[in-house]
């Protein structure tokens, strides 16, 4: 019962984040909202693990947290610098002058 209402609250948070992602005037707002959506998804999976009473689901939450982080940084870097970097050139943005 407690866990179900917690899951509902997370869903409300995710809904608000999605609204900002749809509204968000700049690309940064959208990515910020998607990042928040991702962290809430991790929590939602953890709460569902609690509801189902199965600890194994937490592995999925952990993996999702990792994928979310890498995805956010990768998308950000791609949009900002136009590439994900290449061999011998770790920070493409550096050349253009910060």
């Amino acid at each position: 019962m407690i866990l179900t209402s917690a899951a509902l609250a997370i869903l409300v948070t995710m809904l608000l984040a999605i609204i900002r992602a749809l509204l968000g005037p700049t690309i940064y707002d959208r990515i910020l909202a998607v990042n928040m959506f991702g962290t809430k998804t991790v929590l939602l999976i953890a709460v569902i693990a609690g509801i189902a009473g199965r600890g194994d689901y937490l592995d999925i939450a952990l993996v999702y947290a990792m994928i979310n982080f890498i995805a956010i940084v990768a998308v950000m870097k791609y949009f900002e610098y136009g590439s994900l970097g290449s061999i011998g050139n770790d920070a493409p943005g550096k050349q253009e002058g910060e």
Binding site: T26, Y28, I31, L32, N35, T39, V42, A46, A49, G55, L58, D59, A61, L62, A65, M66, F69, I72, V73, M76, K77, F79, E80, Y81, G93, E98
Partner: peptide, 30 residues
């Protein structure tokens, strides 16, 4: 399972500021 939850928390505590910082820096760059 509790240890796993703690791991998730630690991981998010380390990555969230990094992601925020990357976003902020990109916005400044943009």
């Amino acid at each position: 399972a509790s240890v796993k939850l703690l791991l998730i928390f630690m991981f998010m505590l380390f990555t969230c500021p990094t992601a925020t910082h990357a976003l902020a820096k990109a916005a400044r760059h943009g």
